[in-house]
Lab assay of single mutants.
Amino acid sequence: SQHQEELPPPPLPPGWEEKVDNLGRTYYVNHNNRTTQWHRPSLMDVSSE
Protein backbone atom coordinates (compact mmCIF):
# COMPACT_ATOMS: atom_id res chain seq x y z
CA SER A 1 0.00 0.00 0.00
CA GLN A 2 1.23 3.45 -0.84
CA HIS A 3 1.73 5.83 2.05
CA GLN A 4 1.61 9.47 1.06
CA GLU A 5 3.25 12.05 3.27
CA GLU A 6 0.90 14.90 3.96
CA LEU A 7 2.57 18.09 2.87
CA PRO A 8 2.08 21.05 5.19
CA PRO A 9 -0.30 23.58 3.66
CA PRO A 10 1.30 26.63 2.07
CA PRO A 11 1.47 29.75 4.22
CA LEU A 12 -1.52 32.04 4.16
CA PRO A 13 -1.17 35.35 2.31
CA PRO A 14 -0.53 38.45 4.43
CA GLY A 15 -3.63 39.63 6.23
CA TRP A 16 -5.33 36.22 6.26
CA GLU A 17 -6.17 34.18 9.34
CA GLU A 18 -7.33 30.59 9.69
CA LYS A 19 -10.21 30.17 12.14
CA VAL A 20 -12.57 27.42 13.26
CA ASP A 21 -16.29 28.02 13.80
CA ASN A 22 -18.35 26.57 16.61
CA LEU A 23 -19.14 23.49 14.50
CA GLY A 24 -15.45 22.73 14.03
CA ARG A 25 -15.33 23.87 10.43
CA THR A 26 -12.22 25.69 9.26
CA TYR A 27 -12.66 28.98 7.46
CA TYR A 28 -10.41 31.84 6.47
CA VAL A 29 -10.70 35.51 7.36
CA ASN A 30 -9.29 38.22 5.12
CA HIS A 31 -8.55 41.14 7.42
CA ASN A 32 -7.59 43.32 4.44
CA ASN A 33 -11.17 43.67 3.24
CA ARG A 34 -13.05 42.00 6.12
CA THR A 35 -14.32 39.00 4.18
CA THR A 36 -14.44 35.31 5.01
CA GLN A 37 -14.35 32.23 2.81
CA TRP A 38 -14.31 28.45 3.13
CA HIS A 39 -11.49 27.57 0.76
CA ARG A 40 -7.91 28.21 1.72
CA PRO A 41 -6.50 31.23 -0.09
CA SER A 42 -3.21 30.74 -1.86
CA LEU A 43 -0.51 33.28 -2.50
CA MET A 44 -1.27 32.86 -6.20
CA ASP A 45 -4.88 33.94 -5.66
CA VAL A 46 -3.75 37.15 -4.04
CA SER A 47 -0.73 38.09 -6.17
CA SER A 48 -2.92 38.77 -9.23
CA GLU A 49 -3.71 42.29 -8.03
Score class of each variant (00 low, 15 high):
residue 1 S to W: 00
residue 2 Q to D: 09
residue 2 Q to W: 00
residue 3 H to G: 03
residue 3 H to D: 15
residue 3 H to M: 04
residue 3 H to Q: 02
residue 4 Q to L: 05
residue 4 Q to F: 14
residue 6 E to H: 06
residue 6 E to N: 15
residue 7 L to R: 12
residue 7 L to G: 07
residue 7 L to P: 02
residue 8 P to S: 14
residue 8 P to F: 04
residue 8 P to W: 04
residue 8 P to M: 04
residue 9 P to M: 15
residue 9 P to N: 12
residue 9 P to E: 04
residue 9 P to L: 07
residue 9 P to V: 13
residue 9 P to G: 10
residue 10 P to W: 04
residue 10 P to L: 09
residue 10 P to K: 11
residue 11 P to S: 11
residue 11 P to R: 14
residue 11 P to T: 09
residue 11 P to W: 04
residue 12 L to G: 02
residue 13 P to G: 07
residue 14 P to T: 12
residue 15 G to I: 01
residue 15 G to R: 06
residue 16 W to A: 02
residue 17 E to F: 04
residue 17 E to H: 01
residue 17 E to I: 09
residue 17 E to C: 09
residue 17 E to A: 09
residue 17 E to Y: 04
residue 18 E to A: 09
residue 18 E to C: 10
residue 18 E to F: 03
residue 18 E to I: 09
residue 18 E to R: 06
residue 19 K to V: 03
residue 19 K to S: 04
residue 20 V to W: 04
residue 20 V to Q: 13
residue 20 V to A: 13
residue 20 V to G: 03
residue 21 D to C: 08
residue 21 D to V: 00
residue 22 N to K: 14
residue 23 L to K: 15
residue 23 L to F: 14
residue 23 L to P: 01
residue 23 L to G: 14
residue 24 G to M: 05
residue 24 G to N: 14
residue 24 G to Q: 07
residue 24 G to S: 07
residue 25 R to M: 11
residue 25 R to W: 03
residue 25 R to A: 14
residue 25 R to C: 14
residue 26 T to E: 04
residue 26 T to F: 04
residue 26 T to H: 04
residue 27 Y to F: 05
residue 27 Y to R: 05
residue 27 Y to I: 04
residue 28 Y to G: 01
residue 28 Y to P: 02
residue 29 V to K: 00
residue 29 V to L: 10
residue 30 N to Q: 05
residue 31 H to Y: 14
residue 31 H to L: 11
residue 31 H to S: 11
residue 31 H to V: 12
residue 32 N to G: 11
residue 32 N to I: 10
residue 32 N to C: 07
residue 32 N to E: 10
residue 33 N to Y: 12
residue 33 N to A: 13
residue 34 R to C: 09
residue 34 R to M: 06
residue 35 T to P: 01
residue 35 T to N: 06
residue 35 T to F: 12
residue 36 T to E: 08
residue 36 T to W: 01
residue 36 T to N: 06
residue 36 T to M: 05
residue 37 Q to M: 04
residue 38 W to K: 11
residue 38 W to M: 13
residue 38 W to T: 11
residue 38 W to D: 12
residue 38 W to H: 06
residue 39 H to W: 06
residue 39 H to T: 14
residue 39 H to I: 06
residue 40 R to E: 04
residue 40 R to Q: 08
residue 41 P to V: 00
residue 41 P to K: 02
residue 42 S to Y: 03
residue 44 M to G: 11
residue 44 M to N: 12
residue 44 M to P: 15
residue 45 D to F: 04
residue 45 D to S: 11
residue 46 V to P: 14
residue 46 V to S: 14
residue 47 S to C: 10
residue 47 S to Y: 07
residue 47 S to R: 09
residue 47 S to W: 02
residue 47 S to D: 12
residue 48 S to V: 10
residue 48 S to Q: 15
residue 48 S to D: 03
residue 48 S to P: 12
residue 49 E to L: 08
